[in-house]
Amino acid sequence: MDFVIFGGSVVTMSERGIIRDGAVVVEGDTIIDVGRSDEIRRKYPRYEKIDAGGKVIMPGLINAHQHAAMSLLRGYADDYPLKEWLEEWVWPLERHMTGYDIYVGALLTAVESVIGGTTTINTMYHYMEDHNEAMAIAEVGLRGVVGHVCFSWRKEQDIKALEDSARRWHRGADGRIRVSVDPHAPYTVDPEYMRELRAVTRELNEKYASAEAPVIWHIHLAETSDEAQKIRESFGI
């Protein structure tokens, strides 16, 4: 599909700055030209036209940290301190969530992302084989980095999920989906397991990735003022 989006203020993110009454030309999945509306419309007369008058035309936003499926938990016990919120409210509820629940929650987030102008999300959650966040992101048409969250108390389950997600989804959906390895946090993943996950990441990169599309890490860090003390107490470091 080839089309011209015209009439809006184009934010070029380059030395050209903002082009008032600008236009963007798209061929297939590639932007091939940017300029003033009158010039672009003369240059591409047969392309489908989309009128963006009074609007901003800009690159898609990127959400660098998200738990897409947790749209289903929006507002749930969110006035508690982090430790209590996780241990007494969120984790007990998540034990009852199915893969389909995760898929539906991620689907809602993906649709809301598109509506808000976000085209890429980096999400950390529980990966399941039957339904998962990657399926939802691919279905809606977003780009995404999809990670399985890892904890010290379920190493065998984590390793299996990481292998399956990388095999099935890394560089999937025409290259729009990538996979990450996601230790939950320094207070829930002990130092030994952190080292194991680094080794797993190297193995997954060797098997499924490339220099242009590596399997990366995604981790919570310094979420609360007492985190350093919790890590010292838990692991003696």
Rank of each mutant, 00 (worst) to 15 (best):
Thr201Ala: 13
Met124Leu: 14
Asp182Gly: 03
Val140Phe: 07
Ser165Pro: 00
His184Pro: 02
Pro191Arg: 00
Gln157Tyr: 13
Gly147Arg: 00
Glu133Cys: 15
Leu204Ala: 10
Ala161Asn: 08
Met124Trp: 01
Gly172Asn: 03
Glu192His: 11
Ile177Tyr: 02
Val145Asn: 12
Arg202Lys: 12
Ala199Arg: 11
Arg198Tyr: 15
Gly172His: 03
Tyr187Val: 01
Tyr127His: 08
Leu162Tyr: 10
Arg198Asp: 12
Gly141Cys: 13
Arg202Gln: 12
His184Asn: 10
Leu204Phe: 09
Glu133Gly: 15
Ala166Phe: 08
Gly141Asp: 08
Ser165Asn: 05
Asn122Lys: 02
Ile159Ser: 10
Glu203Cys: 06
Glu203Asp: 13
Arg154Ser: 15
Asn122Met: 14
Glu133Asp: 10
Leu197Val: 06
Asp190Gly: 15
Ile137Lys: 04
Cys150Thr: 09
Val140Ala: 09
Ile137Arg: 02
Met128Gly: 05
His148Gln: 09
Ala134Phe: 04
Glu203His: 05
Ser180Ala: 15
Asp190Ser: 12
Gly141Pro: 08
Leu197Trp: 04
Pro186Met: 01
Val189Leu: 03
Asp174Ser: 13
His131Asp: 13
Val145Arg: 07
His148Trp: 03
Asn205Asp: 10
Asn132Lys: 06
Val145Pro: 01
Val140Trp: 00
Thr188His: 09
Glu196His: 10
Val146Phe: 04
His170Met: 08
Val189Lys: 01
Trp169Cys: 08
Glu196Thr: 06
Arg198Phe: 15
Thr188Leu: 15
Tyr193Lys: 01
Asp174Trp: 09
